[in-house]
Structures are given as structure tokens and as C-alpha cells.
Design a protein around this nucleic acid. Structure first.
Lengths: 312, 312
DNA sequence: ATAATATTTGCATCATATGCAAAGATGAGG
DNA sequence: CCTCATCTTTGCATATGATGCAAATATTAT
């Protein structure tokens, strides 16, 4: 129930030697100081100061209280300073959460640069493929690819999430490259799906929207498996550009129906950084999200360069 | 500027797991808790808690702040408790100030009993014959004989301060005992005085007030010297009853003109305990003054007993 | 899907802190 | 010895901040 104010005024009065001087230093009326200290004395139930018009002197209780309380006030200021210190620049532990595949390819490689720029930050990177509650896992920021759900979080767009058709040069040499979406039905299409039943690829391109029923001799719920199969020349895959972009650039994979992309669903399927909608966004989170935005840029390095663009 | 209240509500919320629960435990509305914590966050400039409708979770800054601040709150409570402990019973150091002669004869002998009754008190007894400022010397209570000056102090009367005429049986056997005040002029009177010039003894007795000019072959500014000279049979002395009372009782001195006493001056010349006029009188001072009042009683043991009264 | 509970915000109310002025008190200096 | 300057304290009016209630929004459990 003690007002911290009263304690501060008490110690200030002891230091200054009088209520008036303490008030002068703190910009308060002497009467205010006097009353606060008197209230503190009532609160602890003991006389803390003997008052004369000319001098204040501590009672035994006052001396005892002053010694302990002035140290405590210093500790309290230190605690506030420590927190403020934590916020005045990117510092401390930063818990980053993200999906495994994207994290390994595009988050982890970025961390050395980030940590070089902000040496006081320590990163704890947690890659999980099941959706987790940020707060539950203790994460400060999460990278999400695709659907967004948590409405209590702020989402900052990092990059588009485009899915492109691709296959290995070897497969295309043998099976030929389709020139119209409908031709996909005749190809061995590598299916990523989490459910049973038929799979349709909705493609948008020069000829408008085309829905093609596709199939082949591989269905899997793991994108990496599709990726590996495509690299191995098994067939045509529909994979996100962040996963195959650089292989397309290097020629290990070739884009199929280059004008066509998977049509985005109802939700924004971009790549986002998510963080809590707190009034005080911590400096480290702000720095990290800014860093990713800057690194991926308006056109991420894994996307097709319009003209031979150097990749980092 | 931090309100202690806000910090307490913050830690209570962390402990309770929610603002509502903390408010329930503390008898406050959830909104109040919420606002106080938000204000604390603004004050330190950092988010301390992530809020969900179902759960609160500490940020890194919050965890840091909580760990430090909860320990600090405990220390603060301890400090208040230590002071309160000091006041709930007579405890701690008690600085007693008094005049040498009275202190040696009637204060110091009382201390064993006092300390036996209040074992947690430690006494520091300072005996000085020049008048000192209580607060200056750091005394909690002073015993004063005679004049009172300090109006900022509370004076509690302990005993009357009577001065009586006395001489040794040997002197009276040789010089005879006066039977009227005027006869003192013919006796060797032992003069205590701090000034030069003639000395008059103002005596009140059966015959009303009598002023007698006295003199002899010893003048001194030290009461103890007068006392010693009287014991040695040099002459008649006018000495306080607390100094000679017990010797009169034992017969080592005999009272002269028993019906007469030195007329008191304008000021109250009793024996008093003086202590600061604080709103919170400390338990140890109260106990000590009460103890002296009780020990000396309405008629101190050094006064003539009306009828053979046992002396402690 | 519904109910229950959590946080937050607006608004009215209430407690507390503050400043000013005046009174009482004390020490320094003439 | 007296006067002046300064300090503490108290009363009163004002302002600042805290509180509770109700409503809005959001989230989890049934």
C-alpha cells in the first residue's frame, strides 16, 4: 500500500537534509514533501525523522528504513533501466518460429547476416510444421507460408507465395513439355496433398483460369518428397517458387507452362512474418522483421529475375 | 515516478495468471489491473505481458522485470516489517542522556532492572553536564534535573527536586545545630555557585520565606565537591535530596533545619524525562520513561520516608 | 454453435496529491 | 537581547490520477 512516491521523497529529504531542499530539487512544495513523509511514517507505524526547523535527523527506525529502502530504490531503478535497455536497441533472446522447409532454405541462411548486424541478439530458431500458438511456444515472431489464421497477430508481408510448374530437363526431354494446361492430364504429375480423392490444379495464365484434373504415380503429403521426385525426373510438380526458384535459375529444373501459376486461394497466401499486436513492439522483433523485408525485397531472390539478376 | 501499486498489480497478475484473478484476489476491478499494468508498460517503455483472453505470458522484458521486481517487493515489505517490528515492542538501541551525578546514582542503578524486563533493548548511556541538544547527540531520551528549556520536547515529570540543608554528625556536634535560618550566617556554609559574588539561600519553612546570606571557607562550582566536603564534616551544605537523601536516611549526614527547603525558582525545578514530541513515540522510549516513573514513584526512595519506608 | 470468461475502453465518480497561504518555531546575526 | 530569515506544518481549494461499472471484442470449453 506504500506509495513509492513517499519513499522517494523520504530518501530525497534525508539526502537533501530538509523537506524544503528536497522539494526544491524535485519541483515540489515543501508541504507536499512533509505530508508524504508523514504519511509514510503512519504507514510503517514509526517515526522516521526528528524534525527541527533547522535540521532533520533520522531516528533508529528511520536509519534502518533508509538504509534498506535506498538500496531498494536503486535496485528498482536498475530493473527499469534493464528493461529500457532491452528496448532501446535490438538485444537479448529472439525466438523465431517457422516451417521447416522454408526455414532451412531462407531463414537460417539469413541469420548470420542478421546476427552480424545485431551482435547483441541471440536467436533461438524453432522450425515446426504443425501450426503452433506463438505465445504457447514462447516465440517472438513466426514466419508463415500460406494461410493466415491468428487474428490477434500482426502479419507483415514478406514475399508472395507463388507456385509454379516444373520438371527436370531429363523428364521433359523424354515426355515432352506441355504447351497448354489441358496437356498436364497426360503427364505424370507429382501430387502433394493431405487428403484422398481427386486433385485439381487451378492454373491462371494467358488463357484465363484453367482447372486441370491431374494425377500420376506419386502422391505424398510432403512437399520435400515431391521436390526430390521432380529433381529425380519423375514428373511435373507444382511447387512454391521459394523452393524451386533457384533450381530453375540454375537449370536443374525447368519451368513448365511458364506463363501459368497456381491460382491463389481465397486467403492471402503470401509469406508473412507474424508477431503479437502489442502496443510496444520490441526492438529485436522490429529489427528482425525489417531485416527479412529488406532481404527478400519486393522481388525475392528466388523468383525469376526479369533479366539475369544476380542472386545473393 | 513508478507507482508501486502498478508493480504490485503486475506481479500479482503474473502470479495469478490473469488480470481478473489478480483483481479478484486484491479486491479490484479487472479493468483497474489492466490499466495499471498497461501504464507500467508505458512507463518502462516495453511490453511486459502478452495478453490473450485465456492466458497471460511474459515477454522477455517482462520476465526480466518480474524476476527483479518481485524480489525487490519482498525486500520492501521486509524493510517495512523490520521497522514495524522495531515499534511493536521495546527493542533496539536506546540512547539515554543525563547529568553525571544523577545518572550515576539513580539512572545507572536502574538499568539492570530495565534491561531485565526488556531484554531486546540495548542501552547507550551518555552522561554529560553541559546541556546538549537531544537530536544533536542522537539521544532518544534525556533526564534533566532543574531548569527546562527545550520547548520542542515533551517533559514528563519523574520526581520533585528538593534541596535540603545537611551536615555531618561530627560537624553538628562541634558547631551545634542551628534552629532558625538566621543562624546559618554564623555557620560554615559550603557554597555551590557558578558565579562570583555573595550567595543567598532562599529557604521556605514554618516561618515563611527566609533569605539568608551565607558564606564559608569553600566555594565550588561542583556539587559533588560540596557533597564530599559535607560528608567530611566541613560545614552545612544545601544539596538536592536525590544526592543526600539516602545518606540522611543512613545517618551519615543529618538534616539541618528539617522544616526548611530551598525555595524553588520560577521554573519548574523537578526532575524530568525529556523526549521529542513526535507523533509516533517509540516503544522503547515510552517503556523507559514509564519505567522511571514507576521506579521513582510519587515519593522517590531517596526522600525521607514519612514512616520508616523500605528503600530499594 | 453456444455459453462463459478474459481483456480493453469510455465515462462518471471518488480518492489522493498538490500548491498556496498562514501560523508556529528555531537558529543566525546584529 | 532582539529581529529576521528559513523551516515545518496545517487548512483549503484545485487538479491529477485511480476506480468501478457497463459495453464491446475476443477466445476457449462444452
Amino acid at each position: 500500500m506504500n506509495s513509492l512516491n513517499a519513499i522517494r521523497l523520504f530518501t530525497a529529504s534525508v539526502d537533501a537534509g530538509s523537506f524544503s531542499e528536497a522539494g526544491r530539487q524535485l519541483g515540489l512544495a515543501p508541504s507536499s514533501v512533509s505530508r508524504q513523509v508523514a504519511g509514510l511514517e503512519d504507514s510503517v507505524g514509526a517515526q522516521l525523522l526528528h524534525r527541527t526547523t533547522r535540521k532533520l535527523s533520522l531516528t533508529e527506525a528511520g536509519r534502518l528504513y533508509f538504509e534498506r529502502v535506498s538500496r531498494i530504490l536503486a535496485e528498482l531503478d536498475e530493473a527499469s533501466a534493464a528493461v529500457s535497455h532491452l528496448e532501446e536497441a535490438p538485444r537479448g533472446a529472439l525466438h523465431v518460429n517457422g516451417p521447416t522447409a522454408f526455414g532451412v532454405r531462407h531463414v537460417a541462411p539469413a541469420l548470420p547476416d542478421f546476427l552480424a548486424r545485431y551482435p547483441e541478439v541471440r536467436i533461438e530458431l524453432t522450425l515446426t510444421d504443425n501450426f503452433v500458438d506463438l505465445l504457447e511456444v514462447g516465440a517472438d515472431v513466426a514466419v508463415r507460408v500460406g494461410e493466415l489464421e491468428d487474428s490477434s497477430l500482426i502479419a507483415r508481408r514478406l514475399a508472395p507465395n507463388r507456385r509454379v510448374l516444373c520438371a527436370s530437363p531429363g523428364y521433359l526431354a523424354g515426355a515432352g513439355a506441355p504447351e497448354r494446361p489441358e496437356e498436364l492430364a497426360a503427364h505424370n504429375c507429382l501430387i502433394y496433398t493431405r487428403h484422398h480423392g481427386n486433385v485439381h490444379w487451378n492454373l491462371g495464365g494467358p488463357g484465363g483460369l484453367a482447372e486441370v484434373r491431374v494425377g500420376g504415380n506419386l502422391r505424398t503429403n510432403n512437399t520435400e518428397a515431391v521436390h526430390a521426385a521432380a529433381l529425380g525426373g519423375l514428373g511435373i510438380a507444382l511447387l512454391p517458387s521459394w523452393l524451386v526458384g533457384q533450381e530453375v535459375q540454375s537449370g536443374r529444373l525447368m519451368e513448365v507452362l511458364p506463363g501459368y501459376r497456381a491460382a491463389p486461394g481465397a486467403l492471402d497466401t503470401g509469406i508473412h512474418a507474424l508477431y503479437p499486436a502489442d502496443r510496444h513492439l520490441s526492438a529485436k522483433v522490429r529489427a528482425f522483421v525489417d531485416f527479412l523485408v529488406e532481404r527478400y525485397g519486393p522481388r525475392p531472390y528466388w523468383e525469376d529475375p526479369p533479366r539475369g539478376r544476380p542472386r545473393p
